[in-house]
Structure formats: C-alpha cells, structure tokens
C-alpha cells in the first residue's frame, strides 16, 4: 500500500502491525517514527504442526527454524519489535499446558536470537478462560527472561496476543452491524482471562510484565462486504471507545484495527483514513 497513507496516520497511532508483504511499509513507518511499536506476523507459517507442538524442544526448534526462514525472507528482523508466532489455531483444551511449554521453548530459542515473541494469536471469542490460564507457566517464565532492553533501558519481555471485537459507544448503531457488538465475551474477553488467572493462580493478567496486545480488532467480522456498515465518524467513535475501555481496564496494552490493504476478501479501511483516527 502507499507509504503516503501510512504517513498520514502516524501522528495518531502508537503501534502498527503488518503481515506478509507489508514489511516495506513497516520499515518506512518505523524510520519516520522510531518509537512506534511494530508487530509482524507471516502468514506463510500459520501455526505449528501437531508434532511440533507436542515434540518437546526438538519440535520447537523445527518450528522456530520455519519462522526464522520466512522472517528473514521478509527482511523484517530488524524492523519488528514483536513477532506473533501463530494465528487463530484451534487446539484441544488439554493441549494448552503444552502450548505454555512450547511457548517457553520458542521464547528461549528465539530470545537467544534477540527476537521477542507474542504467543497465542487467539481467535475472537477464544480460548476458554481456563485454557488461557494454562499459559501461566509461560507468563512466569517470560517475566524472568527479558530479551534485551528498550531504548529507555527498561527490560523487554515476551508477550501474548489475542484477537478481539471492538467496543462502540451506546447509541452508535448501524442496520448492518453484527448483533454481538459490545458482547463482553468477544470484545471484553480479556477480563475473563484475567479472572481465570486470579482464581487459578492468584495473579492478574496485568501483573504479567510482557505486552498483552489485541493484534486484530474490528467491529464486525472484517470481511469486504461489511464496507458500508460504519461511517468514518462511527468508526472514529469506536476507536475512541475501545481505547477508553481498554485503558480503563488496564489489561491490554494496545490494539491493531483490522484492516488496511486490498487483499483477498478482507475489509479495507483505507477510505476512512486518517479520519477515523484523528
């Protein structure tokens, strides 16, 4: 997409996520705004194979090699602050403790390369809060194993990501909007993750030192045929309400609004920029 479009939103954003083929845009944005928090995911590697997840350190090593190959090819290793290592993977409930172990192995392997990861990338409305709480061992481990430091000297930690629906202020509606707008289980699911961690382990999600990021967030499904559902003004209201709610709850450090770019059948919010952010 045009770098000029990215430049037009830089005054209004603190973070930017990109996927495969957007590395050039990310690099351009980071050059202009070095304190921008940049997140990258490469869709050429969506999630581990079952045998990689369940395969102990050898499985994690193989998956790390697959990730490193595409990140190197995309030329983003010196651009992104965080790499999301999987996307919307549905696994059995009993595998979540294994996901914690796997994430520790990956955090160790990639951390040794100076790479910070976001594990999870969970689908909106997933996982079950108890499943999320099974990542506790990863959180504890990550808190004790920073990956270098930020320019201000504070330690940098591995993190976790999930995908959410956005919040809209009461009264902002559209005939075409999805019925689950503002649903606490989809927009506010992080509060249930937090409750499960407190009930099971006596600590809050916010006690975890690494970033908790909503790396995909929209006020709908995010398909192209939803393009006319919200006006620019309504989207601006949604951005502000979401930022207000997330900041007030203090559990999520940032969010990436889905989506900018003309790819496949995904919604392209370019016509609403920079207005929906300003």
């Amino acid at each position: 997409m045009p770098d000029a479009l990215i430049e037009s939103v830089l005054p209004y954003i603190g973070t930017l996520k990109g996927v495969t083929l957007t590395g050039g845009n990310l690099r351009h944005a980071k050059t202009i705004k070095p304190d921008l928090l940049v997140v990258y995911r490469d869709y050429r590697v969506e999630h581990p194979a079952d045998f990689e997840l369940l395969g102990g350190r050898g499985g994690a090593r193989q998956y790390a090699d697959r990730l490193l190959a595409v990140w190197t090819d995309a030329n983003v290793l010196d651009v992104a602050d965080y790499f999301e290592i999987m996307n919307e993977w549905k696994i059995p409930s009993s595998w979540y403790p294994r996901l914690a172990e796997f994430s520790i192995c990956l955090g160790e392997i990639l951390g040794n390369e100076g790479i910070s990861i976001l594990t999870g990338g969970f689908f909106p409305g997933m996982p079950e809060p108890e499943e999320f709480a099974a990542l506790y061992e990863y959180f504890r481990w990550a808190d004790g194993h920073p990956v270098g430091a930020w320019p201000d000297g504070s330690p940098k930690y591995h993190g976790v990501s999930f995908h959410l629906a956005g919040f809209m202020p009461p009264g902002v509606t559209s005939p075409g909007m999805i019925p689950w707008i503002n649903d606490p289980w989809i927009a506010g699911r992080y509060t249930f993750f937090d409750q499960a961690l407190r009930l099971r382990h006596g600590c809050s999600l916010r006690d975890f030192r690494g970033p908790k990021l909503a790396t995909e967030l929209y006020w709908g499904y995010g398909f192209a045929d939803e393009a006319g559902v919200w006006t620019t003004g309504q989207l601006r209201a949604g951005v502000r309400e979401t930022a207000r709610r997330l900041s007030e709850d203090g559990l999520v450090d940032g969010f990436h609004i889905w989506s900018v770019g003309q790819v496949a059948n995904w919604i392209d919010l370019s016509p609403h920029l920079p207005g929906m952010l300003s």
Binding site: D207, V239, D253, G254, F255, I257, V260
Partner: peptide, 30 residues
C-alpha cells in the same frame, strides 16, 4: 483493589519502553 479476596499489586506500571499505561492505538496492515 481486591477481587475474589486476592489483593493484586501493580509493580510494573507506569510506562516501560513504548508502553504508556494507556492502550496504544494502531492499525493492521494486510
């Protein structure tokens, strides 16, 4: 603040690195 009887501490706020204490607003480039 306490919830379900468990006091929780917040020793790591405020800001660290690029994190401001408020939710960072951003875009997803696809």
């Amino acid at each position: 603040m306490t919830t379900v009887g468990i006091p929780y501490v917040d020793p790591f706020r405020p800001a660290r690195g690029p994190f401001t204490g408020s939710a960072l607003v951003g875009l997803h480039l696809t």
